[in-house]
Amino acid sequence: MIPFRIVRSSVGLLCALSLVLSAGAARADYPDRPIEIVVPFVAGGGTDLVARLVADYMGKKWTQPMLVVNKPGGGGVPGARSALKESRPDGYTMLIDIHTISSMLVGAQKTPPLTIADRKYAGRIVRDPMVFAVKADAPWKTFKEFSEWVKGHPAELVWASTGPAGPSRYTAFDWMTQIGVDPTKTRMVITPGAADAMAKLAGGHVVLAIHSVAEVQTMRDAGKIKVLAVLSPSRLKGLPDVPTAEEEGVVKGVRVQWWAAAAFPAATPDPIVKKWEAALSEMTKDPQFLASAQRLNMNIDYLNAADTRAFVDKEVAGYTEMATAIGIRR
């Protein structure tokens, strides 16, 4: 039997402790400890670089360390799950969300492991359009010319696709449908990633590769490949002499692009998300930040929280329709 005085003093101590702690929590400003930014892909890749830029800026702004944690594998889904569903929704775990684990995932699966409702967006940061790349010494000079050739020789089109249901495939599907080519007649080569596809393109093992601007930059600068068109509403500042697919009269509308946004678990308190939204808006106007992004060939294109959600929902509709038409929606 524990003596009563010990019980009494321990209870007293507990009360005191809880008061101190809760008072501390109520008074502390967010953030009062390091924030973990989860990247469900390998370090050094596109998503990771966005995270590091954000971490760098926010770390300085809020004088709290921002830890970029990479959890690659499984197409990015396990890492995203750990950030959205297996962590506490207290604003100290953030996810860099991209299309392959959000809109594209939901569009392709009837019961996806993650839904858009699992996220609360703080804002979109980067938008990287897709481009159509062929070998530098390929005979076609314009995208229109190339598309005509594809119409006539679909079986000779060997093209690289990152993953069986990745952005390359959707873009290709959209393009082929609009020019009247049956995608199943072409030869799709599935590659694990963009670097691999670029190597195959430069080596002449595939004829076409469809990737984001950042992913083709290195090979383009090395002079091994050329970009025939960019899938974007208007020409990009970084590629002034590359026409848009719409300009070439080949593909109308942009339904596939690479983007990265800051997302929190759905139950995260609104004030925290709003704070991030404001900070992101400020960040994407900061000249130093923009200069660092420019060095990385990153196209900063900010959207606030509500607009990001609307953008993603629109993408979901587009991908659902395409996935059903391709026949990969399960």
Binding site: V42, A43, G44, G45, D48, L49, R52, A195, D196, M198, A199, A202, Q217, T218, M219, D221, A222, K224, R295, L296
Partner: peptide, 22 residues
Amino acid sequence: LGIPASAPLALLLGGLTVYGLQ
């Protein structure tokens, strides 16, 4: 060529990219 043959090299590539060195 900017093609990493293994995971550590991919990170080195990321390091180069951070400095804007293509």
